[in-house]
Design a protein around this nucleic acid. Structure first.
Length: 262
DNA sequence: ATGTCTCTTTCGAAGAGA
Protein backbone atom coordinates (compact mmCIF):
# COMPACT_ATOMS: atom_id res chain seq x y z
CA UNK A 1 0.00 0.00 0.00
CA UNK A 2 1.54 3.30 -1.06
CA UNK A 3 1.32 6.11 1.43
CA UNK A 4 2.16 9.79 1.50
CA UNK A 5 3.80 11.46 4.44
CA UNK A 6 3.99 15.15 5.30
CA UNK A 7 6.02 16.98 7.96
CA UNK A 8 5.26 20.57 8.97
CA UNK A 9 6.45 22.86 11.73
CA UNK A 10 3.12 24.54 12.43
CA UNK A 11 4.17 27.16 15.06
CA UNK A 12 1.01 26.78 17.19
CA UNK A 13 -1.48 24.12 16.16
CA UNK A 14 -4.37 25.99 17.81
CA UNK A 15 -3.74 29.30 16.06
CA UNK A 16 -3.21 27.53 12.75
CA UNK A 17 -6.00 24.97 12.87
CA UNK A 18 -7.55 26.54 9.71
CA UNK A 19 -4.46 25.99 7.57
CA UNK A 20 -3.88 22.49 8.94
CA UNK A 21 -7.42 21.69 7.79
CA UNK A 22 -6.68 23.33 4.43
CA UNK A 23 -3.61 21.15 4.00
CA UNK A 24 -5.48 17.98 4.94
CA UNK A 25 -8.33 18.84 2.55
CA UNK A 26 -6.21 19.88 -0.41
CA UNK A 27 -3.24 17.53 -0.13
CA UNK A 28 -4.68 14.63 1.88
CA UNK A 29 -1.45 12.99 3.05
CA UNK A 30 -1.99 9.66 4.78
CA UNK A 31 0.08 10.81 7.73
CA UNK A 32 0.86 14.36 8.91
CA UNK A 33 3.64 15.03 11.42
CA UNK A 34 3.52 18.41 13.17
CA UNK A 35 6.13 20.18 15.28
CA UNK A 36 5.93 23.24 17.54
CA UNK A 37 2.30 22.57 18.37
CA UNK A 38 2.80 24.79 21.45
CA UNK A 39 -0.10 23.08 23.16
CA UNK A 40 -0.84 20.57 25.87
CA UNK A 41 -2.10 17.37 24.21
CA UNK A 42 -5.64 17.80 25.59
CA UNK A 43 -5.96 21.24 23.98
CA UNK A 44 -5.03 20.15 20.45
CA UNK A 45 -8.11 20.81 18.25
CA UNK A 46 -8.60 17.19 17.20
CA UNK A 47 -12.31 17.32 16.25
CA UNK A 48 -11.80 19.09 12.95
CA UNK A 49 -8.96 16.74 12.02
CA UNK A 50 -11.08 13.69 12.85
CA UNK A 51 -13.94 15.05 10.75
CA UNK A 52 -11.61 14.92 7.74
CA UNK A 53 -10.72 11.31 8.48
CA UNK A 54 -7.64 11.90 10.63
CA UNK A 55 -9.06 10.23 13.71
CA UNK A 56 -5.82 8.60 14.89
CA UNK A 57 -3.58 11.05 16.72
CA UNK A 58 -0.48 10.40 18.82
CA UNK A 59 0.99 13.50 20.42
CA UNK A 60 3.26 14.85 23.12
CA UNK A 61 2.78 18.37 24.40
CA UNK A 62 3.58 20.99 26.97
CA UNK A 63 2.31 24.47 27.70
CA UNK A 64 3.60 27.18 25.40
CA UNK A 65 6.60 25.52 23.82
CA UNK A 66 7.61 22.61 21.61
CA UNK A 67 5.12 19.79 21.15
CA UNK A 68 4.84 17.14 18.40
CA UNK A 69 1.86 15.31 16.91
CA UNK A 70 1.21 12.58 14.35
CA UNK A 71 -2.18 12.57 12.59
CA UNK A 72 -3.22 9.53 10.56
CA UNK A 73 -6.14 8.14 8.60
CA UNK A 74 -5.21 4.64 9.77
CA UNK A 75 -4.41 3.30 13.24
CA UNK A 76 -1.14 4.20 14.96
CA UNK A 77 0.61 2.25 17.69
CA UNK A 78 2.20 4.62 20.21
CA UNK A 79 5.84 3.51 20.61
CA UNK A 80 6.68 6.15 23.20
CA UNK A 81 8.97 9.15 23.32
CA UNK A 82 12.53 10.01 24.24
CA UNK A 83 13.95 12.96 26.10
CA UNK A 84 17.35 13.30 24.46
CA UNK A 85 19.69 15.65 26.37
CA UNK A 86 17.28 15.41 29.32
CA UNK A 87 15.66 18.75 28.59
CA UNK A 88 12.21 17.74 29.84
CA UNK A 89 10.71 18.98 26.54
CA UNK A 90 8.05 17.45 24.27
CA UNK A 91 10.25 17.12 21.20
CA UNK A 92 9.78 13.53 20.07
CA UNK A 93 7.20 10.80 19.60
CA UNK A 94 7.37 7.47 17.77
CA UNK A 95 4.63 5.32 16.25
CA UNK A 96 4.19 2.11 14.30
CA UNK A 97 2.11 2.39 11.13
CA UNK A 98 -0.21 -0.40 10.03
CA UNK A 99 2.29 -1.43 7.33
CA UNK A 100 4.91 -2.07 10.02
CA UNK A 101 6.96 1.06 9.41
CA UNK A 102 8.37 2.78 12.47
CA UNK A 103 7.84 6.55 12.18
CA UNK A 104 9.53 9.04 14.50
CA UNK A 105 8.70 12.74 14.68
CA UNK A 106 11.40 15.13 15.99
CA UNK A 107 11.68 18.76 16.91
CA UNK A 108 15.42 19.20 17.42
CA UNK A 109 16.33 22.24 19.59
CA UNK A 110 16.85 25.46 17.63
CA UNK A 111 20.01 26.27 19.57
CA UNK A 112 19.74 29.99 20.33
CA UNK A 113 21.56 32.79 18.52
CA UNK A 114 25.26 32.37 19.32
CA UNK A 115 26.99 29.25 17.94
CA UNK A 116 29.23 28.77 20.99
CA UNK A 117 28.29 26.43 23.81
CA UNK A 118 30.56 28.31 26.23
CA UNK A 119 28.40 31.43 26.08
CA UNK A 120 25.08 29.98 24.88
CA UNK A 121 23.72 27.00 26.80
CA UNK A 122 21.06 26.36 24.16
CA UNK A 123 23.67 25.69 21.50
CA UNK A 124 25.27 23.04 23.70
CA UNK A 125 21.88 21.47 24.31
CA UNK A 126 21.28 21.26 20.57
CA UNK A 127 24.60 19.51 19.96
CA UNK A 128 24.03 17.18 22.91
CA UNK A 129 20.54 16.32 21.68
CA UNK A 130 21.93 15.26 18.30
CA UNK A 131 24.83 13.37 19.90
CA UNK A 132 22.39 11.36 21.99
CA UNK A 133 20.33 10.58 18.87
CA UNK A 134 23.55 9.31 17.30
CA UNK A 135 24.39 7.14 20.29
CA UNK A 136 20.85 5.77 20.41
CA UNK A 137 21.15 4.43 16.84
CA UNK A 138 24.73 3.29 17.32
CA UNK A 139 23.38 1.09 20.12
CA UNK A 140 20.57 -0.28 17.98
CA UNK A 141 20.44 0.15 14.21
CA UNK A 142 16.99 1.17 12.99
CA UNK A 143 15.14 -0.97 10.45
CA UNK A 144 12.17 -0.18 8.23
CA UNK A 145 12.04 3.25 9.82
CA UNK A 146 11.40 6.85 8.87
CA UNK A 147 12.38 9.92 10.86
CA UNK A 148 10.94 13.32 10.06
CA UNK A 149 10.72 16.74 11.55
CA UNK A 150 12.23 20.13 12.10
CA UNK A 151 15.89 19.24 12.57
CA UNK A 152 16.80 22.97 12.73
CA UNK A 153 19.86 22.33 10.54
CA UNK A 154 20.29 22.98 6.82
CA UNK A 155 23.16 20.61 6.01
CA UNK A 156 24.04 21.30 2.37
CA UNK A 157 25.35 24.40 0.68
CA UNK A 158 22.28 24.41 -1.56
CA UNK A 159 20.00 24.07 1.49
CA UNK A 160 20.54 27.77 2.30
CA UNK A 161 20.29 31.00 0.33
CA UNK A 162 23.95 31.85 0.98
CA UNK A 163 26.38 29.24 2.26
CA UNK A 164 29.07 31.85 2.85
CA UNK A 165 26.82 34.24 4.76
CA UNK A 166 25.36 31.53 6.96
CA UNK A 167 28.54 29.71 8.02
CA UNK A 168 28.42 31.45 11.41
CA UNK A 169 24.63 31.45 11.70
CA UNK A 170 23.06 28.79 13.93
CA UNK A 171 21.43 26.17 11.64
CA UNK A 172 24.28 26.01 9.13
CA UNK A 173 27.53 26.08 11.15
CA UNK A 174 30.10 23.37 10.40
CA UNK A 175 29.88 21.87 13.90
CA UNK A 176 26.11 21.45 13.60
CA UNK A 177 26.43 19.94 10.12
CA UNK A 178 29.09 17.54 11.45
CA UNK A 179 26.91 16.47 14.36
CA UNK A 180 23.97 15.88 12.03
CA UNK A 181 26.14 13.88 9.62
CA UNK A 182 27.39 11.63 12.43
CA UNK A 183 23.84 11.04 13.59
CA UNK A 184 22.75 10.31 10.02
CA UNK A 185 25.62 7.86 9.58
CA UNK A 186 24.83 6.10 12.87
CA UNK A 187 21.32 5.23 11.67
CA UNK A 188 22.27 4.72 8.05
CA UNK A 189 19.59 7.33 7.28
CA UNK A 190 18.94 8.26 3.67
CA UNK A 191 17.90 11.87 3.05
CA UNK A 192 14.77 11.11 1.02
CA UNK A 193 14.15 14.69 -0.05
CA UNK A 194 17.62 14.96 -1.58
CA UNK A 195 17.41 11.46 -3.02
CA UNK A 196 14.41 12.67 -5.02
CA UNK A 197 15.60 16.25 -5.59
CA UNK A 198 19.41 15.96 -5.76
CA UNK A 199 20.15 19.28 -7.45
CA UNK A 200 19.45 22.92 -6.76
CA UNK A 201 18.47 25.32 -4.01
CA UNK A 202 15.70 23.90 -1.81
CA UNK A 203 14.23 25.51 1.30
CA UNK A 204 11.46 24.73 3.79
CA UNK A 205 11.69 27.81 6.05
CA UNK A 206 11.63 31.53 5.46
CA UNK A 207 11.90 34.06 8.31
CA UNK A 208 8.89 36.16 9.30
CA UNK A 209 11.22 39.14 9.44
CA UNK A 210 11.73 39.53 5.72
CA UNK A 211 9.54 42.19 4.16
CA UNK A 212 8.76 40.00 1.15
CA UNK A 213 9.80 36.45 2.01
CA UNK A 214 9.21 35.10 -1.49
CA UNK A 215 10.98 37.87 -3.38
CA UNK A 216 13.95 37.86 -1.00
CA UNK A 217 13.85 34.03 -0.93
CA UNK A 218 16.39 33.85 1.89
CA UNK A 219 15.33 30.38 2.92
CA UNK A 220 16.83 27.36 4.63
CA UNK A 221 15.98 23.63 4.41
CA UNK A 222 15.43 22.82 8.07
CA UNK A 223 12.70 20.20 7.72
CA UNK A 224 13.62 16.67 6.72
CA UNK A 225 12.35 13.21 5.82
CA UNK A 226 14.92 10.43 6.26
CA UNK A 227 14.47 6.66 5.91
CA UNK A 228 16.50 3.52 6.49
CA UNK A 229 18.13 1.95 3.39
CA UNK A 230 15.78 -1.08 3.47
CA UNK A 231 12.86 1.15 2.47
CA UNK A 232 14.58 4.15 0.87
CA UNK A 233 14.18 2.70 -2.63
CA UNK A 234 10.41 2.70 -2.11
CA UNK A 235 10.40 6.49 -1.75
CA UNK A 236 9.45 8.93 -4.47
CA UNK A 237 7.61 12.16 -5.14
CA UNK A 238 9.32 14.40 -2.60
CA UNK A 239 8.29 18.05 -2.65
CA UNK A 240 8.07 21.20 -0.56
CA UNK A 241 4.66 22.91 -0.60
CA UNK A 242 6.11 26.40 -0.88
CA UNK A 243 2.64 27.87 -1.47
CA UNK A 244 1.69 27.16 2.14
CA UNK A 245 4.24 29.73 3.32
CA UNK A 246 2.00 32.32 1.64
CA UNK A 247 -1.31 31.13 3.11
CA UNK A 248 -3.27 33.29 5.53
CA UNK A 249 -1.55 33.60 8.93
CA UNK A 250 1.18 31.17 7.80
CA UNK A 251 3.73 29.20 9.71
CA UNK A 252 7.28 30.27 8.90
CA UNK A 253 7.84 26.67 7.71
CA UNK A 254 6.42 25.01 4.59
CA UNK A 255 5.20 21.38 4.57
CA UNK A 256 7.58 18.74 3.17
CA UNK A 257 6.16 15.61 1.48
CA UNK A 258 7.37 12.16 0.46
CA UNK A 259 5.57 9.04 -0.73
CA UNK A 260 6.52 5.40 -0.13
CA UNK A 261 5.38 2.35 -2.09
CA UNK A 262 5.36 -0.25 0.66
C1' DA B 1 18.71 44.09 8.43
C1' DT B 2 16.95 43.96 15.99
C1' DG B 3 13.14 42.91 11.96
C1' DT B 4 8.35 39.42 13.05
C1' DC B 5 5.49 36.23 15.26
C1' DT B 6 3.55 33.45 19.31
C1' DC B 7 3.54 32.06 23.78
C1' DT B 8 2.88 33.22 28.93
C1' DT B 9 1.33 35.94 32.93
C1' DT B 10 -2.84 37.89 34.28
C1' DC B 11 -6.20 41.76 31.47
C1' DG B 12 -1.88 44.63 28.90
C1' DA B 13 2.83 45.19 28.47
C1' DA B 14 6.93 42.75 28.49
C1' DG B 15 10.10 38.86 28.30
C1' DA B 16 11.35 34.43 26.15
C1' DG B 17 11.96 31.67 22.25
C1' DA B 18 12.32 30.98 17.45
Amino acid sequence: MPFTLCTWNINSVRLREPIVLKLLEEEAPDVLCLQECKSPVEKIPTEGFAALGYSHIVARGQKGYNGVAILSKTPLEDLGDRDFASLGHARHVAVRLENGVRLENFYIPAGGDVPDREVNEKFGQKLDYITEMRDHWRAEAPEKAIIVGDFNIAPREDDVWSHKQLLKVVSHTPIEVEHLAEMQDAGGWVDITRQDIPEGQLYSWWSYRAKDWSAADKGRRLDHIWATPDISNAAHGSRVLRDARGWEKPSDHAPVFASFDL
